[in-house]
Design a protein around this nucleic acid. Sequence first.
RNA 1: GUGGCUGUAGCUCAGCCCGGUUAGAGCGCCAGGUUGUGAUCCUGGAUGUCGGGGGUUCAAGUCCCCUCAGCCACCCCA
Length: 434
Amino acid sequence: MSESPARPEPFKAPVGTHDVLPPESERWQALIAHFAGLVGRAGFGLLQSPMFEEIGVFARVGEGTDVVRKEMYDFHDKGDRHLALRPEGTASVARAFVQHRPTPPWKVWYAAPSFRYERPQAGRFRQHHQLGVEALGCADPDLDVEIISLLWDFYASIGLRKVELVINSMGTTEDRRAYIGAIREWLHARIDQLDPADAEKVADHPMRVLDSKRPITIAAIVDAPRITDHLSPDALAHFVRVQEGLAAQGIPFRIEPRLVRGLDYYTHTTFEFISHALDAAQSTIGGGGRYDGLVESLGGPPTAGIGFGSGIERVLLTCDAEGVFPAAQSRVDVYIIDTTGGASARDLSVELRRAGVSVDRAFDGRSMKSQMKSADRSGAAYALIIGSDELASDVVTLRPLRDHQPQHTVGRDAIVDTLARLLSEPTPTPEDLP
RNA sequence: GUGGCUGUAGCUCAGCCCGGUUAGAGCGCCAGGUUGUGAUCCUGGAUGUCGGGGGUUCAAGUCCCCUCAGCCACCCCA
């Protein structure tokens, strides 16, 4: 009859969210740093923007899309403002552009969480993270090529090989509008040949029918008019220039006239990167396009824009599937073992860190054996041992852990310099040892 | 929002079909193996509201119902 007090139900991360712990988080850091370097060298600067906005920022630009219609993670705050967690990166960037009016071309990148209220599954979460860039105020098709090349090079440089680039052109806003009318009419005439689920979309979102995965629909629309056959001369010239540019960079691509991306605002070039290492369901690892009307719809001046977003979780999933970009175990250079009460470890660790040496140590006065195990696990190249003998003689024992060199004693006042010198050598040789 | 599968130690899982003594394994963790030395080896140890709630029963990890969560698929997307 033990009366243990009822323990509260332990908390868990909310549905569709997840913690990223070391060592996996080391990969995240490395991936983001790699991305930052790549786009930084192309003149993109970091934009930090709020992860929530007035809901209109997102609603205005995606009224016809599921991302906005049913997946928005929205709420009312204590001031009764209707806000939404950012479902994707582009709208926030466009809003910041309208608000601050930087001098175009404005090239920014971000690494930020995105939120969608939907049921999680493989490669899909309520909070996921995107790496992205946006470039506003420039309509040059060579910028399209630059943007696509960056994402291509990003995937290639982290080791991904089974990635396919698919491109399409939505034409100008007028082209798009005219095509929507034409395709609606064409589909309407064959509506009984479509899968019922797709037939429902014909009236409001006819283009969505084009990228249906339902076999009945796919069979029914093989001869549907293609937007690439309905481009105005300007749009066609733009699209051709993009293709020439990609070819000149040696980037293979496939034109997919039925590629219709999930957001309403795209014009001209749209593109997706598909991983063939992932199962079909969530195989899109990145995508983007040009959105020449977006800034205007947010109250800004007519401004061209283009960008991409790529999901970090999916990219890392793809890395796992291809066996590339593994997590690197973080390690310290030095691990201090102190069996004399801890004051030496306490003070020496601070001294060494101030000298730029990475140091960890054991706490709680554990046994030497236990501390040595911790030193081994820490990945440190050297253990610094301070026992009663060392303390009495004012020295420390320097024990290499990664090779079979013998351990040495070093004067307490010389150890910081000794280690700093030792660790600055690429590969320590016997002559470097004291 | 709809459907399928799964929830047992920190992790991976066995046990459930055919209810029955103190619920197991491996890994990990902790400690010891001549009281100062890791990664191997040996020995020992700790940790479980058996996801939660209700029901059936003399008895439930095991059977039934509800619920929550995870995974997966649809939808859609990164």
